[in-house]
Nucleic acid binder design. Structure first.
Lengths: 125, 125
DNA sequence: CTCCTAAGATTACATTTGTAATTATATACA
DNA sequence: TGTATATAATTACAAATGTAATCTTAGGAG
C-alpha cells in the first residue's frame, strides 16, 4: 500500500467534509465548516491547498473555479490513524484500551449485539 | 478537572517511559528510548525540558542531576487522547469505530469474555 | 587546587501547523 | 469595453515540533 500523507488536526475537518460529499468548491467546503469552526474562507482555502499539495485532495476545473474531492480513501485513513493512535497512546492495541472505549461509548441495544457478535466471531479463531 | 497540556507525538514516548518507571535521570530516559528511537541524548533532554515547561513533568534534585517524574496521570491523559481521537477521526464515538477496533485486535479468550461482559453490563442500562 | 567531564542551560534551525491577508486574474455586469 | 467581484495564487507570520549543537558550570580525578 502506498504511503498516506500526514493530515493535521485542522485538515481532518476538511477531509471529513469532502469524504461526506464531493466534489465541492472551496466556498462550499467553507460553508460546511462554518457551522462548526470559526475559520475564515481564506483559512479553509489554505487548508485545501495544503491537502492538494500533500496529495490527499485532487480537483477538476469547473469554469473559473476548482471542484475538490478526496484522493485518498476514508477507510484507509481511519485505519492508519487508529493504528497510530493506539501505538502512540497504548503502545499497541490492548484489552484495557478496548474496555475503555466500550465503557465510554453510548450504544444502542442493536449496537451491543453487533459488537458481541464480532467478539464471538473472534473467539472462534 | 484541570486543563492538560498538549503532548506531541515524540513527547508521548518520553511520557510513556516515565509513566512506566520514575523518577529517572535524563540519561536513563534516553537509555530506555534508545532501543526504539534514533534520538540522541540531547534530543531526549530537549523533549523532557519541554514537558517540564508544559507542566507535564516535574523533577527533584539528586546531586548535580535531576530526576524526572510525571506530573499528570497516565489515565487522564489516555482518556483525553482517546476522546480527541474519536472526535477528530470519527466525529464521535461510534459503533463502526468500535467494530474496527475489535476486528483489528488480537485477543485472548479471557479478553473476549471480559469485553463481552462489559457489553452486557452496558446492555442493562 | 586544577582541569576534565557529565549535566544542565541556552541557542539553533528547518518544517509543519494554525490562521489569515494581500495580490493577481478571469468574468459577468453595466 | 471598462470595472467590480469572485477565485485562485502568493505571501505572511507566530507557535509548535523534530532534532540537535554549543555553551556553562559544578563535582570528581589527579
Amino acid at each position: 500500500m502506498k504511503k498516506l500523507p500526514k493530515i493535521s488536526e485542522s485538515e481532518w475537518l476538511v477531509m471529513r467534509v469532502l469524504w461526506s460529499k464531493s466534489p465541492l468548491a472551496a466556498q462550499e467546503v467553507f460553508e460546511q465548516l462554518d457551522a462548526t469552526t470559526k475559520w475564515k474562507p481564506k483559512t479553509v482555502k489554505t487548508l485545501i491547498d495544503r491537502l492538494v499539495k500533500k496529495g490527499a485532495v485532487k480537483y477538476e476545473k469547473d469554469g473559473r473555479r476548482y471542484m475538490y474531492y478526496p484522493a485518498v480513501g476514508r477507510d484507509e485513513y481511519v485505519t492508519k490513524e487508529r493504528r497510530s493512535f493506539v501505538r502512540r497512546v497504548y503502545g499497541g492495541i490492548s484489552k484495557p484500551m478496548l474496555a475503555a472505549f466500550l465503557e465510554d461509548a453510548e450504544l444502542s441495544a442493536d449496537d451491543i449485539s453487533e459488537l458481541k457478535e464480532i467478539l464471538e466471531q473472534k473467539a472462534e479463531e
